[in-house]
C-alpha cells in the first residue's frame, strides 16, 4: 500500500500532502513578506531625509515632487497590504485544520 505498483493508478492519498506542503510553504513566505513590509515602508519614508536640503546650492527638491514621492510610496504600501490581506483571507478560508492556521505565526 505504501508504494503503488507501476500499473496501478497513483493513489489519491499521497497527493494532497505534497500540495499542502507547498501551500504551507507559500503561507510561511507570505508571512515573511508581511513581516518585511513595515521595514520596507520605514526605509521608503526615510529616503527623503537623504535629499538635498533647501539651504544647499541646488535649492533642494521641490515640494510637489516630494508630495508625489511620499504619496506614491504610501499608496504602494497600501496596495501591497491589500494584496496580503486578500491572500491571508484565501489561505485562512482554505485552511482546513484551523489549528494549523493558528500556529502560523511570527
Amino acid at each position: 500500500m505504501s508504494q503503488p505498483g507501476p500499473d496501478e493508478p497513483p493513489l489519491a492519498a499521497p497527493r494532497p500532502s505534497v500540495f499542502l506542503e507547498r501551500q504551507s510553504y507559500r503561507r510561511r513566505r507570505l508571512a515573511d513578506a508581511a513581516r518585511i513590509l513595515p521595514f520596507l515602508g520605514a526605509a521608503l519614508i526615510a529616503i527623503p531625509l537623504l535629499w538635498p536640503r533647501a539651504d544647499t546650492d541646488e535649492g533642494g527638491v521641490s515640494l510637489s515632487s516630494a508630495i508625489l514621492y511620499i504619496f506614491i510610496c504610501w499608496a504602494a504600501l497600501i496596495g501591497v497590504s491589500f494584496l496580503f490581506g486578500l491572500a491571508a483571507r484565501r489561505m485562512s478560508s482554505s485552511d482546513e485544520p484551523r489549528a494549523e492556521g493558528e500556529r502560523w505565526r511570527p
Binding site: 513581516r35 513590509l37 513595515p38 515602508g41 516630494a66 508630495i67 511570527p106
Partner: peptide, 21 residues
C-alpha cells in the same frame, strides 16, 4: 513646516501594515 505633518499619519500606517505580528 511643509510635509512634516504626514509623519503623524505615516507612523500609524507602518503600525497597521505590520498588523500580522
Amino acid at each position: 513646516s511643509g510635509l512634516e505633518f504626514v509623519t503623524i499619519y505615516l507612523g500609524p500606517t507602518l503600525v497597521m501594515i505590520s498588523w500580522w505580528w
